[in-house]
Design a binder for these strands. Structure first.
Length: 218
DNA sequence: CAAACGATCGGCT
DNA sequence: GCCGATCGTTTGC
């Protein structure tokens, strides 16, 4: 595993506003997502992502460039959060990418916890500190959003203002290309052919990656 | 206005 | 491995 660098640097608009959302999804692996609410700071290293891309991707909420109040933020320029409620329970955190008009986003699916584990545990209602409980803190898109206090009320908020809610830093912990695995996205079986596209990326040897889905029966 | 449906999780068998 | 929880969003009548 890579060693930290002393000076964290904030990811800039040009990182997010690239037009290749698959590349952004890979490049986000190893970056550090930070949140700070009321002086309570939590941070985790990104270990798993999924790319979503309008207009051609049926699994994307903005498929065919359909605009709704919920998905409007995806059409804005990159460097914001798109957070929505899933199954009536879970808030799922996405990074909006690409220039305005292109509705691309990267779902953050798992983190390796780095800072504020006690706040994460409290928000997640996890009592112990065993290795298994540490994994449960931030593995899975709903879990990590809960651990970092990311709520759909913050959808649309900028990621470019460090110290204001949440942002993403480069601490020199990126995942080298040969350590990145890819495969189909989770939970998008309804999306026809797009369901098979290998647009999920994860750090191959990380403990902090969500379970692979059951193989679909033939 | 009604109804169907999730980019999931955790508890239980 | 299976199943139920739970509710905002979207679409259709």
């Amino acid at each position: 595993m890579a060693q930290p660098v002393p000076t964290p640097t904030l990811l800039l608009p040009e990182f997010y506003r690239r037009t290749d959302v698959l590349q952004v999804a890979r490049d986000l692996l190893g970056m550090v997502l930070v949140s700070e609410w009321d002086g309570r700071r939590t941070a985790g290293r990104i270990t798993e992502t999924e790319a979503y891309r309008a207009p051609d991707d049926r699994a994307c909420h903005a498929y065919a460039n359909r605009r709704t109040p919920r998905t409007e933020v995806m059409f804005q320029d990159g460097g914001r959060a798109y957070i929505y409620l899933c199954y009536g329970i879970h808030h799922l955190f996405n990074v909006v990418t690409a220039p305005a008009g292109q509705a691309h986003a990267v779902l953050i699916r798992a983190l390796e916890p780095l800072e504020g584990l006690e706040y994460m545990a409290e928000r997640r209602n996890i009592l112990g500190t065993s290795p298994k409980e540490k994994i449960r803190l931030t593995t899975g898109p709903g879990a990590l959003s809960q651990a970092l206090g990311l709520h759909r009320a913050c959808s649309g908020q900028s990621l470019l203002l460090p110290g204001k809610g949440f942002w993403i830093e480069d601490r020199g912990l990126q995942v080298p290309g040969q350590d990145i695995a890819s495969g189909p996205r989770i939970g998008v079986d309804y999306a026809g052919e797009c369901a098979a596209w290998p647009w999920r990326f994860w750090e191959r040897d990380s403990l902090y990656v969500s379970k692979t889905p059951r193989l679909k029966s033939l």
